[in-house]
Design a protein around this nucleic acid. Structure first.
Lengths: 108, 108
DNA sequence: GACACTTGCAACCGTCTGGTTGCATACTGC
DNA sequence: GCAGTATGCAACCAGACGGTTGCAAGTGTC
């Protein structure tokens, strides 16, 4: 399949799953109760999330608890970093511009 | 269509387009030269990016220059914020743990 | 062992997606 | 006005995606 993390977070249901298991590990059944779909659909999403190592599973008896691999989320942050630089630069430029305008106004 | 920004960045080609026009505004033709696909495919991607307001277009004669709407990228950053809190908390907890271990070692 | 429960896997289906090809539109320069 | 260039739009297509249903496997309880 070769799915990457960006495809993983593209689906709204998967983002919701991520938000839920970020707080505490949950079983597929417990997760499915939060959505208007079948348990199998949720399981499929979990499979995708597992494939790209966004979640980890831990078997406890007959239940499987899924939890978020927060480290993997940093990859998105890392990707975003290059753009954060851009908007921070622009904000600084705007600040400078405003500062210059203020100064000019003071002169006039 | 109702596409959101997460679907927009899910495609590798679209992320590459974003990376290119982040540096400078470009025309569809110029963009297409960077990919192993047709100009029309790139145009389709641009259309999707435009739909979710990630890029803006500026007509200059018969050419259309596309540039990145950096503000929109902040939406991803905003979404990531909740998870950044989590991993920063964990890092702090790890730091504390290491500090305690160091202290214990000093005692021993 | 029998039964209930939790889960994963396979098959199927309608829809979306990314890509191509062909064509129409609009601007430039002669 | 006309050839050439840049672009968007529509139609089509193979493959991926999200969902459902049915079934098998493993676990816990009696």
């Amino acid at each position: 399949m070769k799915r990457d993390i960006f495809q993983a977070i593209a689906d709204p249901t998967r983002r919701a799953i991520i938000a839920l298991i970020a707080l505490q590990a949950m079983t597929p059944n417990a997760l499915a109760e939060n959505f208007h779909t079948t348990r199998q659909a949720v399981s499929k999403h979990l499979r995708i999330l597992t494939e790209c190592e966004l979640v980890t599973q831990e078997q406890r008896g007959r239940e499987i608890y899924y939890s978020l691999e927060i480290e993997k989320m940093k990859e998105i942050d890392k990707w975003l970093e290059q753009y954060r630089k851009i908007w921070e630069t622009r904000v600084n430029q705007l600040d400078e511009l405003l500062a210059v305008m203020k100064k000019e106004k003071g002169k006039a």
